[in-house]
Computed example of a mutant assay.
Amino acid sequence: METIGVLLLNLGGPDSLDAVRPFLYNLFSDRLIIKLGPPFMQRPIAALIAATRAEKSRSMYAQIGGASPLSRITIDQAKALSNALSQPQFAVFTGMRYWHPYIEDAVKTAYDSGIREFIALSLYPHYSLATTGSSFGELERVLSTKYPARCRYIRSWPDNPLYIAALTELINEGIAEFDGRYPHIIFSAHALPEYFITQGDPYVTEINKTIDALRPALKGREIHQSYQSRSGPVKWLEPSTEVTIEMLAGDGIKDILVVPISFVSDHIETLYEIDIFYRDFALKRGIILKRVKSLNTHPVFIQALKTLINEVLE
Rank of each mutant, 00 (worst) to 15 (best):
D201C: 09
I103C: 11
S265Q: 13
M60F: 07
K290Q: 08
K235V: 14
G180I: 09
I164L: 12
S59K: 12
F118R: 04
I274R: 00
K56W: 05
I197Q: 05
E206Y: 07
L121E: 14
M41P: 09
R291F: 13
R43W: 13
T3R: 12
G114E: 11
Q87M: 06
A217Y: 08
R58K: 14
Y127C: 03
P161D: 05
F178H: 09
K209H: 09
R285A: 02
L305F: 04
H267M: 07
K35Q: 14
K108I: 09
I185M: 01
E169K: 09
Q42M: 15
G137V: 04
P193D: 04
M247C: 01
L143Y: 01
S128P: 10
T205W: 13
P39S: 13
Y163F: 15
I274E: 00
P161H: 03
F40M: 12
R31D: 15
A130L: 04
A47F: 11
H184D: 03
P239Y: 10
L36D: 07
D15M: 13
A282E: 00
H267D: 14
V300A: 05
Y278Q: 13
F263P: 06
L295V: 06
F178R: 02
L218V: 08
I185F: 00
I103K: 10
M60L: 05
L295A: 05
M41N: 06
V234M: 08
V292N: 06
G220W: 08
S226P: 04
Q303N: 12
P125E: 12
V204M: 01
H298V: 07
Q87S: 15
P38K: 14
D251H: 14
K108N: 07
P158L: 13
E269H: 10
I64A: 03
V92F: 12
I49C: 03
N208P: 00
F118K: 03
D105S: 13
Y227L: 13
F23V: 01
A249Q: 03
P158M: 08
G114L: 13
A191Y: 04
D255G: 09
S128K: 10
S135H: 07
E177C: 04
A213D: 02
S113G: 03
E238R: 05
A19Q: 12
L8H: 12
V234K: 02
T270F: 08
D201Q: 09
P88D: 12
L170D: 03
F40N: 04
L36A: 07
V292Y: 08
R285C: 02
L85C: 09
R181C: 01
P69D: 00
Q225H: 10
L129R: 13
F263Q: 13
F93L: 01
R21V: 03
P299D: 07
E177R: 10
Y25E: 12
V300H: 00
M247F: 06
S156Q: 09
N10W: 11
L7F: 10
Q228G: 01
S135P: 05
F40Q: 10
A249F: 03
S229P: 15
P158S: 10
I45T: 11
D266V: 14
E311Y: 01
Q42H: 10
E117G: 01
D15W: 00
I207C: 08
H126L: 08
N296G: 02
Y127P: 08
E269P: 08
R279Q: 10
S231P: 03
G65N: 01
S128A: 15
P148H: 14
L167M: 15
R230K: 15
S134W: 11
R150F: 05
T132G: 11
A84D: 10
